[in-house]
């Protein structure tokens, strides 16, 4: 019994020390990257072999800077192989833009890096673009009014403890979502809610829009720091996994006078202080685009 107690006490003490003061240990063991978690093939040459499970057969070759995703498969995700006297660790990688089946194979780990880690990768700087015409963010009118029910901005949520911070535009799953004006993507797709994603765009008049509950599909030419035009396809309508609601675009708009995360406490919307009601603007854009509005 005393020995048992001693073991528990030692473990508790070790854990408390770890949490309270041992940040140096943590910093040594934690890999910190500056920039998005976008993996690419990063090598000096133009092409890299992707191999099968045995590492002896080349499935196809990938181009330098081709987007990649590192696979975790519940099983063996690493092998090593000596090639011409050099020992490599191979990891399982998917190249999602490839149409080959399978598009997953084994690549030397040293050549799979994030964009920020890849020394020969440079992201082209976006040039500023002037404000253009405002437009409605879906290709057709919302199938139900965004001014009524749970869809409207300010609708009650969680039994009245908070308010809805967006206008929900019900449409069809996978349909194109459009940028409401020119702007720059300041945050590319991230986990938003129940299996859907969000993208954030700073528009040319300074307003920031969050296009939420989109699916994960990337729209052509859209990515972090990329400039988008008015009406450009920037994402696709998604559906939350609970099945609670129709497929929709959850559209949030901010004046752009505050800084920091768009979701946060401090008000009943649980949003940044410069959140604005987009309803009147949506009405205007809807009328301009479709000739009618809710």
């Amino acid at each position: 019994m005393p020995l048992h107690f001693y073991k528990i006490f030692s473990t508790m003490l070790a854990a408390i020390i770890l949490i309270l003061g041992n940040s140096a240990l943590a910093s040594d063991d934690v890999r910190v990257l500056e920039g998005p978690l976008d993996y690419i093939a990063c090598m000096a040459g133009e092409r890299l072999n992707l191999r099968d499970e045995t590492l002896s057969k080349v499935l196809f070759t990938v181009k330098r800077h081709e987007p990649a995703k590192v696979v975790q498969s519940f099983g063996q995700d690493q092998q090593e192989k000596t090639i011409d006297g050099v020992k490599y660790v191979f990891i399982k990688v998917q190249f999602p833009e490839r149409t080959e089946d399978p598009n997953i194979g084994w690549v030397a780990q040293v050549y799979i890096k994030t964009k920020s880690e890849c020394g020969n990768y440079t992201e082209p700087a976006p040039s500023p673009v002037p404000l253009s015409e405002w437009t409605f963010p879906t290709v057709k009118r919302a199938s139900q009014s965004y001014k009524t029910g749970a869809r409207r901005f300010g609708a009650s949520r969680s039994g009245g403890s908070r308010y809805h911070a967006a206008a929900d535009l019900y449409r069809v799953h996978g349909e194109k979502v459009l940028s409401v004006n020119t702007g720059k993507v300041i945050r590319d797709r991230y986990y938003f809610y129940e299996g859907t994603y969000a993208i954030e765009v700073k528009h040319s008049d300074g307003k920031v829009a969050r296009y939420g509950e989109i699916n994960g599909q990337v729209a052509a030419g859209v990515g972090l720091n990329k400039v988008v035009a008015s009406g450009q396809n920037i994402g696709f309508v998604g559906t939350v996994t609970s099945g609670c609601c129709n497929p929709m675009l959850h559209f949030e708009l901010y004046q752009g006078t505050a800084t920091g995360a768009l979701t946060q406490g401090g008000n009943k919307f649980n949003r940044r202080s410069d959140l604005i009601d987009p309803t009147s603007l949506l009405t205007e854009w809807e009328h301009d685009k479709f000739g009618v509005s809710y």
Binding site: E46, N49, L55, Q76, E80, I83, V86, Y88, A108
Partner: peptide, 27 residues
């Protein structure tokens, strides 16, 4: 022995590698 970014790759790990004197083992 693993390549650093500036050291340049060996031929056989990249495209058109045809012959390899290699052994493999799971890590």
């Amino acid at each position: 022995k693993q390549h650093s970014e500036g050291s340049g790759p060996t031929e056989s790990i990249f495209q058109n590698s045809s012959t390899m004197n290699s052994s493999s083992a799971p890590v």
